[in-house]
Every structure is written in structure tokens, then in C-alpha cells.
């Protein structure tokens, strides 16, 4: 087992991650490495710190201490430009959070177009101020056209291309969440974080969202999923983290974890939810 571990490429290396809100120690030292292509499901009791852990991974919550190595940089360090790294860390929320004032297509295109245009402008400015060796290899029109092509391809993939020009308020929860997922995908992320992606859905819509996540997993996407769907966690995950009281109190493969839990806390939790 150890030889194969060494060959794997780490995507996120978390070292002694702590998060305090005032005197409330929500995360009490988490050290863990997530490897490329790995699918991790996080489960645990309410208030245990699952969401906080996930949100620290892209610094939506600033860690109190510890480090998170992503792309060779410690993104927990306040000095790094976190926006650049977030482009490569997709995040999907329980409440979808599609932009209400944008159409579906605009929702998907907004971040790629805005960020790439910004970079293009910066390059142009640098060239203007004398950096001759900078190559301008694209135009705003091209950026938009490419983003639109990607967006339409992704919409087609989930069978919602006819919804491209509608506003989110007209969509069902399942449609919203699937669009939120491809909106994150449009950025070409190296890892995707899901915080209870199906908890706000009507039961009949859970399936379509889980199907899409499952597909992404099969295509090799690295994923970390906080979920209450035990069956889904067992089926999709390579590893399960059990987070309670701010630490990963037990982890293992689904078989180890569900069939042979060691920690009494895990046993108690599983007896309640299974």
C-alpha cells in the first residue's frame, strides 16, 4: 500500500489545520493529504466541523493556523493571492448559489470571461509599459467565444442546453444544482469541493445530482464531498473521513469504515444513521 501512496500526486496537503471562532475551537488540528483522482467523503455529526473544514480548503474561512499546500503554495498564508488558486478549486454549495441576476449561460461564462479578460488587460498593460517579450495570443472576443463554447458543451452534457437563456428562478432545485456544478467545472478545477450538495433538494431530484457527481468521479476528478447520503458515500468514496469535535476521529476505505468501525464515536454515529 505504501509504495502506491508514494507514486500518487498530492493535490491538497493539509498540515495541522486549526480554526477558532473566538474561544470556540471548531477545527483542532487536522493533518491530511488528498491525492489526485481521489474521492473523499466527509461524514459526521452536525456541528462537528465538516463545513468549516471544507471551507478552509479554499480559504472561504481563513484558517487560524496550520498550512494548506495547493499548487506548491501555502494558500493558508494570507500573503498569497487566493483568488488565483480558487480558480482551480471548484466549490458547490448546499443552496446552489446561482447568480440570480444572470442567465444560466451567463452564470457559467461569468467567471472564465471576467478572469481571463482581466489577465489579458494586465498583459496588454505590461506590454505597453515596455515588456516586449509578452505575447498577446488572444482577444476579448475569442475569450468570450471559447467560454460560450465550453458552457454550451457542458449544458448539453447535462441535457439543459435549452435552458441557456433563462434565469435561475425558473429552474428546479435539481437543475440549479447541476448547473452550479458545471459552472464550477467550466473553470477546469483540479479539485472539487461539495458541501452537502443534495441536502436542499426534494427527494426526487437527489438522483440526478448524485448521477452527475458520480460521472465526474468516474472521469477522474478529485473530489471532497460532505454528505449525509451514506449509501452514496460508500459507493463513490475511496476514503471516508469521520469528522467530529473538530478532528478526523476516524478514516478508512468505505468497507473498513462502515463494516469495521473502530472508534466508539463512529459506531454510535453509524448506529443512528444506518
Amino acid at each position: 500500500m505504501n509504495e502506491t501512496l508514494n507514486e500518487r500526486v498530492p493535490v491538497l496537503q493539509v498540515r495541522n489545520l486549526r480554526k477558532h471562532y473566538g474561544s470556540n475551537q471548531v477545527l483542532r488540528g487536522i493533518t491530511e493529504t488528498i491525492y489526485e483522482g481521489e474521492k473523499v467523503a466527509i461524514i459526521g455529526p452536525s456541528g462537528g466541523g465538516k463545513s468549516t473544514f471544507l471551507r478552509c480548503l479554499n480559504c472561504m474561512e481563513d484558517p487560524t493556523s496550520g498550512s494548506i499546500i495547493f499548487d506548491g503554495e501555502d494558500i493558508a498564508d494570507m500573503k498569497v493571492d487566493i483568488n488565483l488558486h480558487r480558480e482551480h478549486i471548484g466549490m458547490v454549495f448546499q443552496s446552489f448559489n446561482l447568480f440570480n441576476n444572470k442567465t444560466v449561460l451567463e452564470n457559467i461564462m461569468l467567471a472564465p470571461v471576467t478572469l481571463r479578460t482581466k489577465k489579458l488587460r494586465k498583459k496588454k498593460l505590461q506590454k505597453f509599459f515596455g515588456k516586449k517579450d509578452i505575447v498577446i495570443d488572444t482577444t476579448v472576443e475569442q475569450i468570450k467565444a471559447e467560454a460560450k463554447e465550453t458552457a454550451m458543451r457542458l449544458l448539453k452534457r447535462i441535457g439543459l442546453e435549452e435552458k441557456a437563456d433563462v434565469y435561475p428562478s425558473t429552474l428546479s432545485g435539481g437543475q440549479k444544482q447541476r448547473i452550479a456544478i458545471i459552472r464550477a467545472l467550466a473553470m477546469n478545477p483540479k479539485v472539487m469541493l461539495f458541501d452537502e450538495p443534495t441536502s436542499a433538494l426534494d427527494p426526487e431530484m437527489v438522483g440526478e445530482v448524485l448521477d452527475l457527481i458520480r460521472q465526474l468521479g468516474n472521469e477522474g476528478m478529485t473530489m471532497i464531498i460532505v454528505t449525509h447520503e451514506m449509501g452514496f458515500a460508500r459507493e463513490i468514496a475511496d476514503r471516508i473521513f469521520f469528522i467530529s469535535d473538530g478532528i478526523i476521529s476516524e478514516q478508512g476505505t468505505p468497507t473498513e469504515f462502515f463494516d469495521h468501525p473502530k472508534n466508539p464515536r463512529t459506531v454510535e454515529f453509524l448506529s443512528k444513521v444506518l
Binding site: 479554499n58 472561504m60 483568488n83 488565483l84 488558486h85 480558487r86 480558480e87 478549486i89 471548484g90 466549490m91 454549495f93 443552496s95 446552489f96 448559489n97 446561482l98 447568480f99 440570480n100 461569468l110 467567471a111 471576467t114 478572469l115 482581466k118 452550479a180 459552472r183 464550477a184 473553470m187
Partner: peptide, 21 residues
């Protein structure tokens, strides 16, 4: 909804871009 700002930031947009757009 604060989720709107969160979604923008999670996609890599800056505070001010998300604010304005």
C-alpha cells in the same frame, strides 16, 4: 443573499468584481 458573494469568491472573482457584477 450572502451566498451570492460566496459563489463569486469561490470561483476566483475578487471581492470588488463580485460586488459590482
Amino acid at each position: 443573499d450572502p451566498g451570492q458573494m460566496e459563489a463569486g469568491r469561490a470561483l476566483g472573482l475578487s471581492f470588488f468584481s463580485t460586488m459590482m457584477l
